[in-house]
Amino acid sequence: MSAPSRTLATDILEATGINPATCYQCGKCSAGCPMASESDLRPHNVMRLVVQDRREAALSEQSIWLCLTCETCSARCPNACDPARVIDAVREMSIEAEVADMPRNVAAFHRAFLEQIRTNGRLHEMGMVMEYKLRSGDLMKDVINAPGMLSRGKLSFRAERIEGVAEIKRIFEKCGVTP
């Protein structure tokens, strides 16, 4: 007998323990998805692409980056398909395959966020915003109402840096992630 060939579905099964074939395309996930109106692919469409082994289409789809991980879909799926987790896994594969079509600002946000953690161990909002602006190219937009934040003592210019920064760097390395 020949070894079963690798498909997107078997990869997902391996990565998440979820068998995408259990999805019967009922659409309950997409019925409650808060981002459905803004995405071209809704959670049940992603499940469908996975089952059909349309790897390219799934991995390079921009919509997967619009999922908020709110878990509404997964909480209500009648078959425990956990679309939120599947989308997470597809995103990971998409980054790995270097075909991710993240909207520029979403990508910028995640990178800026992770970079902050890697260098300080904690998030420094001001630093992150600077970094985000550079990465997204959205230099002018005041994304978080910085003056308001400052006046309310919610932002500080100084970053908190933890003592175990080396440990954080080690974690990033061991997980093979470079922001």
């Binding site: 659409g27 309950k28 019925a31 409650g32 809704r42």
Partner: peptide, 18 residues
């Protein structure tokens, strides 16, 4: 399509489906 949520909103019963 399956329904995701049903709730009462004032006089109506809202049904969120797909």
């Amino acid at each position: 399509g399956r329904v995701s949520r049903i709730f009462r909103d004032g006089d109506v019963v809202k049904v969120w489906g797909y």
